[in-house]
Nucleic acid binder design. Structure first.
Length: 154
DNA sequence: GCCAACGTTGGC
DNA sequence: GCCAACGTTGGC
């Protein structure tokens, strides 16, 4: 069992959007970074914990809890000419981009970036490290536990 | 809108 | 395979 932090831009898919989706589950489309893709393709397992994180917005931070809800499969948007995630170089027989479904179990209070940065013990959280821009990052078990505590989850 | 940090591309 | 130029991310 592993844990992950997954960034979503609320203007694209907010935590409310995700919860409102059928089965409160959304395909994690649009990842076009190999490292992030590899996490989904090679390391994620159904049931892994997910921190749903809002980025590129007024109040970035953790806003929801969920889990990985599928095994990896090709991201359909890479073949969709009308999608902004269309990738002309990706072939159907050899898809370049892979994703998983994420089930959002509950919306939490906003645990914002400033609060995350101020929390003793979270200094090494990948997302807080300088220059980190990865949209999907692993979360250590101890960090996961501390974040749940900060959220008032037990 | 700025810009630091990092990833990707492409000429050589 | 190197690396400069360019593009993107994402907080501020």
């Amino acid at each position: 069992m592993q844990y992950w932090l997954m960034k979503s831009e609320p203007e694209e898919v907010s935590v409310d959007d995700a919860i409102a989706a059928p089965k409160s589950t959304v395909p994690w489309t649009g990842v076009r970074n190999y490292q992030a893709r590899n996490f989904m393709r090679d390391q994620m397992r159904v049931g892994d914990g997910v921190l749903f994180y809002h980025s590129s917005c007024a109040e970035p931070g953790v806003v929801g809890l969920g889990e990985v809800a599928s095994t990896p499969y090709p991201d359909p948007t890479q073949f969709d000419r009308k999608s902004k995630y269309y990738d002309a170089a990706s072939k159907k027989e050899e898809p370049r981009w892979t994703l998983v479904d994420v089930h959002v179990r509950k919306k939490t209070r906003l645990l914002g970036l400033p609060e995350l940065r101020a929390a003793k013990g979270l200094e090494d959280l990948v997302i807080l490290r300088r220059g980190n821009r990865l949209s999907i990052t692993p979360v250590e078990a101890k960090h996961w536990r501390q974040i749940l505590k900060l959220l008032g989850e037990t």
